[in-house]
Simulated scan of single mutants.
Amino acid sequence: MSEDTKPPVPYVRKKRGRPRKNGRPKLRKEPDRPSPSQRTGQRFKTITVNEETYYILKELSTFYKVSVGVYIYSLVLPAFDHAYQESITLQRIDANRKKAKDETPDTDDVPRRTHF
């Protein structure tokens, strides 16, 4: 063999799928990082809505040119105020009912009626 000729390279089958990128893989700072709603100290929670509701919210938010979160907040805030006022009313009714129950005499000698 002379220096010009090289030995034949054996055939290597290509792997299926997307080829890997060249270079060092990215390093993740936290390998088991939870979702944003599960992290401590975050101000977000995850809610689940069905697909139709999501598309309706998306269309309404694009119509009003606001984000979905802002639009949902504008719906939830008046509903919360209404429910809060109702809860105050129900609490007052319950307190009056307990007060009336405490004031009623619980004796057997009820005064007789004198006229009908």
Rank of each mutant, 00 (worst) to 15 (best):
Y11W: 09
T40L: 13
S37P: 02
E52V: 14
P8Y: 01
D4R: 12
Y71S: 01
E52K: 13
F80M: 12
R39P: 02
D108T: 09
F44Y: 11
Y71P: 00
T48Q: 11
R43P: 00
G17H: 04
D94R: 11
F116C: 09
D4L: 14
T89Y: 10
T46G: 01
V70M: 07
R33I: 02
A95H: 10
L77F: 06
L90V: 01
D102N: 12
V12F: 06
V12L: 10
S35D: 07
A79T: 04
T46Q: 06
Q85Y: 04
R13V: 06
S2V: 03
T62R: 14
N22P: 03
P8H: 08
K65C: 05
P78N: 05
P31C: 05
E51F: 03
N50T: 03
M1P: 07
V49C: 04
S87G: 05
T107L: 14
A100N: 10
P10F: 07
Y11S: 04
P10W: 04
F80I: 14
G17Q: 04
R13M: 03
I93C: 06
R92A: 15
T62M: 10
P10G: 05
H82F: 14
P25C: 03
I56T: 11
I56E: 08
D81S: 09
Q38N: 05
S2N: 12
K65T: 10
F116H: 14
Y11C: 02
S67Y: 00
R39E: 10
G17V: 03
V68K: 15
D81H: 12
Q91I: 00
Y54H: 11
D4F: 09
P19H: 05
N50M: 03
I56G: 01
S61Q: 04
P36Q: 10
E59M: 13
D106T: 12
V110H: 06
H115T: 13
Q91A: 13
P105S: 07
K15I: 02
E51V: 12
D94P: 01
P31Q: 10
H82A: 11
Q38S: 08
T5N: 13
F116I: 11
I56F: 07
V70N: 08
S74E: 08
K45M: 12
R92W: 03
Y54F: 15
T40P: 06
V76M: 15
Q38H: 08
R16F: 07
K6L: 11
R43F: 02
T107C: 11
Y55H: 14
K99F: 09
Y11A: 09
E59A: 15
V68A: 07
S37R: 02
E51L: 09
G17L: 05
K21R: 15
L27K: 11
P10I: 00
Y71D: 00
G69Y: 03
G23F: 02
Y54S: 06
Y55V: 02
R20V: 03
T5Y: 06
K58C: 09
H82I: 14
N22T: 12
D109E: 13
G23H: 01
V70D: 11
S2A: 10
P19K: 15
G23T: 01
G23I: 03
R113A: 05
Q42H: 09
V66I: 15
R39W: 00
Q42A: 05
P105Y: 01
P19G: 07
T107P: 02
V9I: 15
R92H: 11
R24G: 01
R43Q: 11
R16V: 12
K14T: 10
R113V: 04
K101F: 10
A100Q: 08
K21I: 01
Q38W: 02
H82S: 13
S67E: 07
